[in-house]
Amino acid sequence: MFRVDCSRLRFLVIDDNGYMRRIIRTLLHGFGTREVFEAEDGAAGLEAFATHLPDVVITDWSMPVFDGIELTKMIRQPDTSPNPFVPIIMVTGYAERNRVFEARDAGVSEMLVKPISAKSLYQRIAKVVLNPRPFIRTENYFGPDRRHLVKADQYKTRGAASNFINSSIGSP
């Protein structure tokens, strides 16, 4: 069994609410993290992301200027982002099903519904560090596999299906 030593990780926290940033920072320092950077909106967050190259991004959804969803889409640009694979944990008050799907389709790694607790935040960090999902790149999507429970064998099956289609219609 493994645990995460947060003192070895660098975090970027993006939230327009100063109190929320303070709470998340306090929890991260409690976990032993030394390097926590902050930004108060999506635009500043994107700049801080390029400057500090964090290991994990924790962002709010609802923010002025541009929000957590738009920020995630910018970070998940495989050809221009400094690290399109970075784990993104979205902290939000939205728990509705359609909102969860929207976040998933933008490329969010994990959702954390408020009110947050030390344990729930630690669990999300542990998940993205210890068991990261493979990333998928298609014409319309780049991000963590949107299916949470895919075994390695299923990627082989997916390959077999792709091969069959290619052999039937001819490879380019």
Binding site: M1, F2, R3, V4, D5, C6, R8, L9, F31, D55, V56, F85, P87, K119, Y122, Q123, A126, V128, V129, L130, P132, P134, F135, I136, R137, T138, E139, D145, Y155, R158, S162, I165, N166, S171
Partner: peptide, 27 residues
Amino acid sequence: GDTRVFHLGGTLRAKAAVRSADAGGVD
């Protein structure tokens, strides 16, 4: 072909994972 799958190399895991006796990986 139409889809690429990236199995991450475990850079973060190598950087921050440590062995633990805690059940469920929660420290």
